[in-house]
Write a protein that binds this DNA or RNA. Structure first.
Lengths: 226, 226
DNA sequence: CACCAGATTAAACACTCGTTCAACCGCTCG
DNA sequence: CGAGCGGTTGAACGAGTGTTTAATCTGGTG
């Protein structure tokens, strides 16, 4: 269907536009114009609209594509289970680096994809931490869902902030190196904190546990006030 | 100089514009137009330019104002020393809530103010953690600057992500409540992690320490490769 | 009073943006 | 061959942006 030139590696034009958009949005953020995206793909702005209906439609297509690749790579990847490591690994692959950067842009802008991705990461972390608990390598928590959310937000959020401050608009090759530097920089403190904690005594935690009557399940956003 | 109406609580017009801009940028982000800001302040767009030269100039004035208030409040505040708690406390004060929200917007956009603020927080955390170490309540680290940066990025970044996802454009009264909910949600997991750690055994940390030959000071970005 | 300087405004300018429209091209099918 | 149709283009539109400019208002000063 569509393109007649039957030889091997040719993409359909819509796919080419979408991929160019992912790269451009990753580099410049979502305020990049349609004409810029179109020029990257070697077409005109009108054609982008023709294929995707609107800029929002184009973004939706990009979101779905990134999510699809993300899911597909997750099943293939042999990481230690943390989402940050998966992203670090993907950022090293030249083909996927723009998608990781796009994802960060998405979190920066706060779209639906970002929310979905973070919830996805939380679900994965839940499974991973539960398995760790069962295997006896992860300490149990007084409120496992809350801890899972906390850890996911810490890991993802610090990554987001780091990239927002240290050049979010790097040209995609520096991006991978930047990612590597980020992981290297936090590896030691993270391992220290995870195995040894930060505080020497338990007084702060005990005070909190005494002060707060009943820590709620805190998994869903129903705020049944009391 | 300037406004002649000498009666009590009147602000100079430029200050009124700047404060309106802080509120508007806090609520809508920096893509809010000059005409909107001007309307909020009861003036016209041209006057904003007349007073601040350009939109960038207005943003600079807002940045300086927020930084000034931040510094001033920090010396007054009696918090536990962490920046997150300072922000939580300030967000509760109606007058300062927009500034906290503005600060988050700034981090979202990645300006110079954001970088300055984060570095500021890191410096403060350094002092706070050093004091904790000296007092024997905080465990020493194999690389204290790296740990300080790590903790600051985690705390600030997760806060930023949380607000980006859960309505960064709330109308400033919900904002304070949102902030309170955020602190409540992470208090228990944070205390757990800080006092008890996450991992049961030390194998991961020991493996890392064996693998990495020499953890560099990692305070400044000079990468003397080897 | 005349005069000037600053505050302030309304209008216009130049530009970008997303989107629309009419036309054109190349192909397939009747 | 000719009709039709989707892919594609270039130009235009309308709304937005930051900024400029000329004019008006206002208040203090010689």
């Amino acid at each position: 269907m569509g393109v007649g030139s039957g030889s091997g590696g040719e993409f359909a034009t819509a796919d080419r536009i979408r991929d160019a958009a992912i790269r451009r949005f990753a580099r410049d953020g979502f305020r990049a114009g349609l004409r810029t995206v179109a020029a990257d793909a070697g077409v005109t702005a009108g054609l982008v609209i023709h294929h995707f209906g609107s800029k929002a439609g184009l973004r939706r297509a990009c979101d779905e594509r990134v999510l699809e690749i993300m899911r597909q790579e997750k099943t293939k990847a042999l990481t230690d289970g943390t989402a940050a490591m998966l992203l670090a690994q993907m950022a090293g692959v030249e083909q996927y680096a723009p998608m990781v950067q796009y994802l960060l842009r998405s979190m920066q802008a706060g779209g639906e994809l970002a929310l979905k991705l973070v919830e996805h990461m939380i679900t994965d972390a839940e499974a991973y931490l539960s398995a760790g608990e069962a295997a006896g390598v992860v300490r149990p928590s007084r409120n496992r869902p809350a801890r899972t959310r906390y850890l996911a937000y810490q890991a993802t959020g610090s990554m987001l902030l780091w990239f927002t401050l240290h050049g979010a608009d790097v040209p995609a090759e520096e991006f991978a190196a930047l990612f590597r530097r980020y992981v290297e920089e936090l590896a030691l403190p993270a391992l220290e904190l995870f195995t040894e904690g930060l505080l020497v005594d338990r007084s702060m935690l005990d005070e909190y546990l005494m002060y707060v009557p009943d820590p709620p399940p805190a998994g869903d956003p129903d705020r049944t006030a009391g």
